[in-house]
Design a protein around this nucleic acid. Structure first.
Length: 126
RNA sequence: CGAGGCGUCCGGGCGGUCGCGUGCCUCAGCGGGGAAACCCGCGACAGGCACGAGGAAAGUCCGAGCUCCACGACGCAGGGUAGCGGGUAACACCCGUCCGCCGCGAGGCGAGGACCAGUGCCACAGAGACGAGCCGGUCGGGGCGGCUUCGCCGAUCCGCCCGGGUGAAACGGGCAAACUCUACCCGGAGCAAGGCCAAAUAGGAGGGCGCAACCGGGGCUUCGGCCUCGGGGUAGGUGCGUCGCCGAGCCCUCGGGUCGGCCGCUCGAGGCGGCGGGCAACCGCCGUCCCAGAUGGAUGACCGUCGUCACGCCGAUCAUGGCGCGGCACAGAACUCGGCUUACAGGGCGCCUCGCUGG
RNA sequence: CGGGGCGUGGCGCAGCUUGGCAGCGCGCAUCGUUCGGGACGAUGAGGUCGGAGGUUCAAAUCCUCUCGCCCCGA
């Protein structure tokens, strides 16, 4: 796979093992935004994988599930522009439950952009 | 028309684009069988079709199914329930009914067995909170003292009866949501139960308790004994004990590996409709339907339109209308059911009560 | 899934076992002391005992339900 090509199948790879999350917690690379905190860890894989963390401060099960689904939707739309070789942990903050989808998408796009995880491309309009 | 009670149902509708999970079909390919045609099984990517959260899925407060513990009997301990009768797989749930309390009423609420088995508690106040004792008085009696001496008076003792400001309650009791007694019920753990496959430096280290004694068969023997099989029964096996049963390993500490897949896993005390029985809860029969199965955890995002509510502006001001903007609850299945409890924007339907008014 | 604990003045805690007065420390207010402040002394205010219901003559205390927070074990 060359740099800049869409990821295989366009499907998201999510982190699931406890070990991956612990490694990500130890990583010092992070970006902060009022809506979320993002921790980054470079890997030598062909893909970029994501983990989502929605703590109890966000709200009940409905709010936490919805925030995760909405962030997954944003990641799906950002998929074609992603650079491979990273593990990313997105920690949603309480304000994200009340934020609009556009605000959430803008925040995540800005964070991943400044971290260099997005290739230059036409802005994903919606 | 106003106020209220009970029950029941819904809890956004329709349409579009993209995305997710499960099942089925098509398909590259793989494996097996066959001489072949072909058949069977698995099945990536993609496409198509179908289905895809709730009345509380919630809290986890009860009750069961199911699985494992060999879990069988009795007793103790522990826990639970409590008028009576019924329903149910079971219940602390539901129905009927009696009684008590609340409400003008429709209705609502109630852990409502027993303190003449025992123990305990009833603060303050009050003579006294339970066997009784204390104070005052009438009456009767005993002996004593005084006097105006067939009698009267005084203090004291004994007996019966009556009364004693209080307090929620007074020789009449109250409290068992005080211990307790009576009747009945309950073995323990929980789908991370439990089973299979694969993988793992690998069947790790230390400590403790055991496989006993004994009897019988066989084998070896350097004649000391050793090995093996069977009986026997030991550690251990629900909180404890007894009996019975199982019985070759069990327990503790430390340090590691794996942390993948499959089954359980969704058809069930199931939903809907009809008929019949019953005051009812509910039960029986017939027909019909298949209705989530995720595992970092599937339902989301962006729109159009309709419905509804609040606000602002305009016209109008006696109902009403147009435009713009914003909102539409509580809340997410995790083995499955039956209940209980709690949260909830707004709304539909049915029955009933009270008050006012009209015919 | 299972188990445990806590909620009492503004803050931190007693009191609950065996039901009858709600208390302690810090803080706060006023006064005194001081030239002034601190410290000290005196006086005082402030609590629906997380909420609802029940038992009882009487409930922070007993019982039931409920809300919120925290901590363990698998």
């Amino acid at each position: 796979m060359r740099l800049g090509e869409p990821l295989v199948g366009g499907s998201l790879q999510m982190l699931r093992s406890k070990r991956d999350f612990e490694a990500l917690q130890r990583s010092k690379l992070s970006r902060v935004h009022p809506l979320m905190t993002v921790r980054l860890l470079p890997t030598d894989r062909d893909a970029t994988r994501f983990g989502l963390s929605t703590g109890r401060r966000i709200g009940g099960a409905v709010q936490r599930n919805r925030v995760r689904r909405r962030i997954r939707e944003i990641l799906r739309m950002l998929g074609p522009r992603l650079v491979p070789g990273w593990d990313v942990l997105i920690v949603a903050r309480p304000a994200s439950a009340g934020a609009s989808q556009a605000a959430l998408a803008a925040a995540l796009e800005r964070i991943l952009g400044t971290a260099g995880l997005l290739v230059e491309g036409e802005k994903t309009d919606r």
